[in-house]
Design a protein around this nucleic acid. Structure first.
Lengths: 197, 197, 197, 197
DNA sequence: TATGAATGAGCATTCATTCAT
DNA sequence: GATGAATGAATGCTCATTCAT
């Protein structure tokens, strides 16, 4: 790679970085290409030199971001086969980048087909961890006999709901933090029938 | 009602019908008032004679649906207060206008503040029916001792999730139909600890 | 005049009355024909049955109103040949209907040609009173030798200025009241050279 | 400055020139941004590339004029502080762009709050020059003891009156030119008690 | 390769006036 | 004579994308 190509690569990465920042703050749909270029300190037109259009930019950004995330998450959840531990770790991860995940939860249905599939694919990897642990837990008689897929959808659907309406549930701070214990206890209740005290 | 009023009423309902079609097809956010007027065969300005603004038009359309739902459930509550029947009825009502509710689930976070508030208020009326039945069921020892609010959020979050990602879960046809029985049985499992057979 | 004509006459007067109210409150330019019809309790179209268009309505209203005003003012100013007394009386009259005069001062340049001429004609009648008193005062050596027309324009221009920017000079209450004494004393200073104390 | 910047500068000034023409002709309120773009031979959107909004365009145009005026007067004040010369200069500057100032005098009360504030602020700078000279003149015993604020309002109110009703005072040509000497002599009479000859 | 000026279709809403009833 | 539903032109502003420099 010669000097020119190197420079181009660098600019490209810079755009990606800045665009992500803007994206996290305002959502991709509400961020204009102009804003991104401005923040990145490049010409508006330069952006379209590196990315064919706005959609392509978002695909690239999230693709990269999701790669990092999902591997991070898999690391964490892979470390423990205890469902509650996994859930706690997962919620912690969400809380760390809550703004990003909140944007994602809200905007996902509006992303271009290709991106949506990619995101959902990675999402499904994480889901499958939970799915497996639940399934084997049921097999071991540890959990009640219910459909593991639906159980997982209840969990992720609920979390997704809290995230996407984040601004309604909390003024500032974290929705995940606010509802963490209730999410965990309610999900445990779904899986396990403790004796009523 | 004289001929004049009749004609106005007719125009109004015609607009509502066309607008709903367009909204269902393209979403509220991507449907312009111009498109609606064009499709309805009226002047653009006429639309604003019948509805103060685009938001009000949306509210009216959704109000009808949500009101129908709320009253349907209330009726049921008055007669039996059986949670499963309520849930079945609710899912049936969602299925009847699934495309519309799917649009709503996706777009709600992007509606202007006031519109969102109005819709969420109507929504909360329906939610409260479930909340009340669950709460009194817990009090009566019929359901397990869990937080009724969180239980309701699990239910509505999950349904919302299925609706908003509808096009991913099904090619054609109804997500609600596809997952109805699993939603019901899993939610029942959350509330009731049946003896494992 | 038969019953029908009588009724028509009555409606017409009613419209004029209501329109004036609205006009005083918001200015004619910012009052819609719809608002007037609504307030008057008549159909929107009826308004155009009695008045060819909005301009004609305003002409008629102000014409009538100005007739009353200017005769009232002439009465008052006619009673006294003392300039200060006349000025005080004039300012009192303005203060009584300050909202109306404020609207008039602001909007006059935008009224249709015909109306503007009428208003200015009536205005000039009042002016001529002041003009005459000043002129004879100068002749009698009572006032300084200056151009009476310009002196009058200074007075009316200043008053007009206070009225037209009324909302900037006072939050509520009267501009005339607020600046009355300064207007009077400064205008007297223009006409008379008192010995400096 | 390179070719690019030069071209932009040129376009910007072209817009300003055309906009001023249109404004002077039809008033600010009755000139549409579309008209300006059309006349200037640019795309409608281009106008908003150079000026954030219509109000800013107006402000810029008036700023130029008012700034010119204010600095011209300030220059003079720095050299001689002679009130009559200041007034002559001020009237000359008004006369140079009389059509524009006439529009301004008429329309100011109808401008949106913020725009009005900005213009009045600039205006008050000019006014303050007169105020200061009068005040210190009074202190020096050169002028009579009267309220300087009201004196200034008499001057500006009167000039404003002539300008706003310009079309009534003159068919063609300049109101300022027509009444210049009378305005000056009458205002001098207000400030100074010359011995009657 | 990078620039950034220019584009122009697109949008919700207002309001005096008309005309069929 | 009265009604009031319908009209439709008009408006300020945004923003992804292009292309001459």
């Amino acid at each position: 790679m010669n000097k020119r190509q190197l420079q181009k690569q660098k600019t490209r990465e810079h755009i990606l970085k800045i665009a992500k920042q803007e994206f996290v703050e305002k959502g991709f749909l509400n961020t204009t290409t102009n804003q991104i270029a401005l923040q990145a300190g490049i010409a508006h037109g330069t952006l379209f030199l590196h990315f064919k259009n706005k959609d392509n930019l978002i695909v690239e950004i999230l693709d990269k971001e999701l790669e990092l995330m999902s591997s991070g998450i898999q690391d964490l959840v892979g470390r423990s086969a205890d469902l509650e531990q996994m859930l706690i770790l997962y919620l912690n991860l969400l809380e760390e980048d809550e703004k990003l995940f909140s944007v994602l939860a809200r905007e996902l249905p509006f992303y271009p087909e290709e991106l949506r599939r990619k995101i959902m694919f990675r999402d499904s990897l994480i889901r499958s961890h939970f799915h497996n642990v639940i399934e084997s837990g049921i097999g071991a008689g540890k959990y009640r006999k219910l459909d593991p897929s639906t159980a997982v959808t209840f969990l992720f659907g609920t979390i997704n709901y809290y995230l996407s309406l984040r601004s309604i549930f909390v003024e500032n701070g974290s929705v995940i933090a606010k509802f963490r214990s209730k999410i965990i206890s309610t999900f445990k209740a779904l899986l396990i029938c403790e004796k009523e005290k």
